[in-house]
C-alpha cells in the first residue's frame, strides 16, 4: 500500500468538520449521545496525494457495540454533491476523536463497500480516515491534532485471512486554492477580535496593513542581525544566514530599476486614463438620472 501518500486537506473540510461537531446531536434518548461527528470526505486522487476538497456529516449512532449509520442519507448526499461538482468522489471518512476504537474498523469496512460500489475500477482506491480531535483530549491540551490514516491488513504470512488491521498514519498537509487562501487570510482576522468577528476590508486598507507587516518584519530582522553581529563568537545558525542572504538577493534582483521605470511610465498613464473614464461614466450616470427624474 502506498503509505508515502500525502493527504491534502482544504480548509473548507476542516470548517465543515468543526461545524458538524458543534451541531452534533445531543442525546435525546438515554445513552445514545454521540459526543462525536462522523461523515464522508469528498475529493479526488492525484499522483502521490489525495486531495480532500469537501465533506459532509452523516447521522450515526453508537451505543456500546450497537453501531448505526444512515446509509441512504450518505448515498443521496454523495450523488447530490456529485451533480454539483462532478470531479469529486468519496475518498474517505472523518471522525472527531483522536482515539481509534474497534468501531472504526466497522465504519471503515462500510466505507470500503460504499466506495467500491461507486468506483468502476476493480481494485478499490485507498481510503483515508481523517481524525480531528475537537475535545482536546490529547497530551497537549492546547493543540487540536489533525491526523490521517490508511488501513492496511496485517497477519501471519500464509494464512488465508488477515488477522488484524493497522491504521498507518499519513502525512497531512493544508492545501488551498488561491481564492481559498485569500478567504482564509481574512477569516484569520477574527482571531484578534473579541467578538470573533471580521469585516471585509478595502484594498487600500489591506495594502496599508501588509506594508506595516513588512516593515515590522524588517525591523525584527534588523534587530536580530544587529544582535548576532554584536555577539563575540560566530553565530551557530547558518541556515538563518542563508535565508537572509536569499532575501537580500531577491530584493536586489527581483525588480530592476530600469524595468520598474518602464512599468511605471507605461502603466501610470493607462491607469489614469481608466480612472478618468470610470469617473466620467459615473458622472454621466448621475446626469442621466437627473434628466429622467426631471
Amino acid at each position: 500500500m502506498a503509505s508515502n501518500m500525502t493527504v491534502k486537506v482544504h480548509p473548507v473540510v476542516y470548517m465543515t468538520i468543526v461545524d458538524s461537531y458543534l451541531r452534533r446531536s445531543r442525546g435525546t434518548t438515554k445513552g445514545s449521545a454521540n459526543e462525536k461527528a462522523l461523515g464522508t470526505l469528498m475529493g479526488f486522487y492525484e499522483k502521490g496525494a489525495i486531495q480532500v476538497t469537501n465533506c459532509f456529516a452523516i447521522p450515526f449512532n453508537e451505543y456500546h457495540d450497537d453501531l448505526e449509520l444512515d446509509d441512504s442519507f450518505n448515498q443521496q448526499m454523495i450523488s447530490m454533491l456529485k451533480r454539483a461538482a462532478p470531479n469529486e468522489q468519496p475518498v474517505g471518512w472523518f471522525l472527531t476523536s483522536s482515539d481509534i476504537s474497534s468501531n472504526c474498523l466497522v465504519y471503515h469496512d462500510y466505507y470500503v463497500r460504499v466506495i467500491s460500489e461507486i468506483s468502476a475500477r476493480k481494485e478499490t482506491p485507498p481510503l483515508v480516515l481523517l481524525t480531528l480531535d475537537t475535545t482536546f483530549s490529547g497530551d497537549n491540551k492546547t493543540r487540536m491534532p489533525i491526523r490521517a490514516y490508511l488501513r492496511s491488513k496485517a497477519g501471519i504470512p500464509g494464512s488465508p485471512q488477515p488477522h488484524c488491521a493497522i491504521f498507518n498514519p499519513l502525512r497531512v498537509e493544508l492545501d488551498a486554492f488561491p481564492g481559498e487562501c485569500v478567504a482564509m487570510q481574512l477569516i484569520e482576522n477574527s482571531l484578534d477580535s473579541k467578538r470573533r468577528e471580521a469585516s471585509l476590508e478595502s484594498g487600500l486598507q489591506q495594502l496599508e496593513r501588509s506594508t506595516g507587516d513588512i516593515i515590522g518584519w524588517l525591523e525584527r530582522l534588523l534587530e536580530y542581525v544587529n544582535e548576532v553581529v554584536a555577539r563575540e563568537e560566530l553565530p551557530a545558525d547558518a541556515t538563518m544566514g542563508r535565508t537572509l542572504m536569499d532575501i537580500v538577493n531577491t530584493a536586489a534582483t527581483h525588480m530592476q530599476t530600469d524595468k520598474l521605470d518602464a512599468l511605471v511610465k507605461n502603466t501610470l498613464r493607462d491607469y489614469m486614463m481608466v480612472s478618468y473614464l470610470a469617473n466620467l461614466t459615473k458622472t454621466q450616470l448621475q446626469l442621466h438620472e437627473r434628466m429622467i427624474s426631471m
Binding site: 461545524d19 477574527s190 470573533r196 469585516s199
Partner: peptide, 12 residues
Amino acid sequence: VIKSSYLVNVMM
C-alpha cells in the same frame, strides 16, 4: 460581518 465560532478560531 464575518463571524467564526470559538472552535473555528482554534482551528484557524
